[in-house]
Every structure is written in structure tokens, then in C-alpha cells.
Amino acid sequence: MEQDAAADSAAARLVGSFLERRREQIAQRWADEPLFRTVFTVSRDEAVEASKAVVDALSAVAVTGRLEDIEAPGFRAVRDQLGRMVASRARSGFTSAQIADEVAGLRGSVTELMRGEFPDPAAPDAKDCVLSLALLMGTLRLVVMETALSAGEELIARQRQQLLEVATPVIKLWEGVVAVPLIGTLDSARSQVVMESLLNAVVSEQARYAILDITGVPTVDTLVAQHLMKTVAAARLMGAECIVSGIRPAIAQTIVHLGIDLGTVLTHAGLADALAYALERQGIEVSPRATAGAGRL
């Protein structure tokens, strides 16, 4: 057993020095493999450089003998790069399993090079080295898989955040009137964002009227109704009036069925009605220009 272990670590060191020595050739070959070729499309040199970074990492890991440790410090240096590569492949529609297969595809060329190092590929030390290299490449595949998974999670979180921000534009409709047209399902997190953006706009625009238009909201449940009422209450505390517009008949029915009391909430059928109300309350009258303009474009 002890001898085995000693042989293993000797083989690992040999693999390490092999990778270091043949860095250039390996990188040249890898640059033509799908994983690097498809990510670094602009220049082949870039692909070669990226390959070299991965070879260096593998070499560093091999020297420490931690062939099967995905937490080995050597990998840390390339995690960022792998992450970017994985993200790029994922954007092209590849699943993490397919990406892992591409990593596995790197093994062939490097193993071939390694075999060429030994006069007799059947000798025990040659076999040990090839085995160690296979282990190491397997670990690289795991590292890539893991990077892919955590990148996926981050992506989802980031997109979620972006969606929240993008989906809630606050529009200034008139001097002193701001509005948010809501589209899509309202969950708790989004309702919070809507409430905050609308109330911040009330301050920045010094708007006395804030309109929440829910024409594009498919359903309203108890929680959403509560959020609407809280927004209205908060606006009132700030000295503004919040109007909810665009309650479709189906939603109105749901609200009644759920027994939700929107009693304190001022509602209007459409955004235009709400705006008309806000203007009227400010003493602004909008009317067609006197006769002369009729019929002109």
C-alpha cells in the first residue's frame, strides 16, 4: 500500500512536470478542440493563451499530488476563466452536461502526447502516469461542472434582480403625476420594488398623485391586494394620493370573492381616467383647441 501511494505521488509529480514541459504543444492542440475553439472565436492566440492557463493550473495541482481534489488551490487560478467559458457555452445553448463532455474531449490529445514520452507505453510507470493524468482530467471536468452550476445560480439571481428593475418603470405623466404600469404577475418581492420605486418618484418629482395601473396584471390575490393597500397608505403618509387603475372585471370579481376590502383605495377604470382625475384635482383642464384646428394633420 505504502509503495502504491509513493508510486502514485511520483506519477503525479511526473504528470506535473510533463504538463509544464509540454505546455506549448498541449495548448496548441487544445486550442483546436471545440471547448476553446468555440469560445475564443476572435483569435486563435487567445484560445492558446486560455489553454495554457488551464494547463498551468493542472500542472500546479498535479505537483501537489491532490489529483482528485476539486478544491485544490491550483484550480482557483482558472475558476474565473472557466466560469467565463462555461457562461459563453451556456449562452450558445449548451447544457452543463454537454460542456462537461467537451472538457472530457480534451483528454485524448494530452494523453496521446504523454504516451509519446515513453519508449514503451506498456511499462508500469507509463501506465501510472496515464492513469494519474486521467484522474486529473476527470477532476477538471468536475470543476467545470461545479462552475457551471454555480454560474447558473448567479445568473438566475442576477436576471431576477434585473427583471425586477426593468419591469417597473416609473413614468412622469404630468407635472405632479407619476405612474407605474404593471405588467405580469406580482409577487411579494416585485410588489416591494414597485412600492419603493413609486414612492421614490413621488419624492423626486414632488408628485401629489401616484397611479398604479394594474391593467397588465393577470391575477390579484390577497397578498398583492395587501401590497396595493400598503402602497396607498404609505403614499398618503407622505402627502400624496395613490390611485389604482385598470382593475379588470375578472379581477374585481376575484377581489370581492376573496373578501378583500379595498375600501380605502381610490380606484379608476383606466389609466386615462386616473390621469383625468389627478389633473382635475390640481385644477388643470385639458380640452381640444378651439375650432380652427379641425381636420388638419
Partner: peptide
């Protein structure tokens, strides 16, 4: 800290 799915307990 919210931003990520918050483990908000039921109201």
C-alpha cells in the same frame, strides 16, 4: 438581506 429569494416567513 433581500435581493436573493428571501426566506420571508408567512405573513
Amino acid at each position: 438581506v433581500s435581493g436573493l429569494p428571501s426566506p420571508r416567513a408567512g405573513a
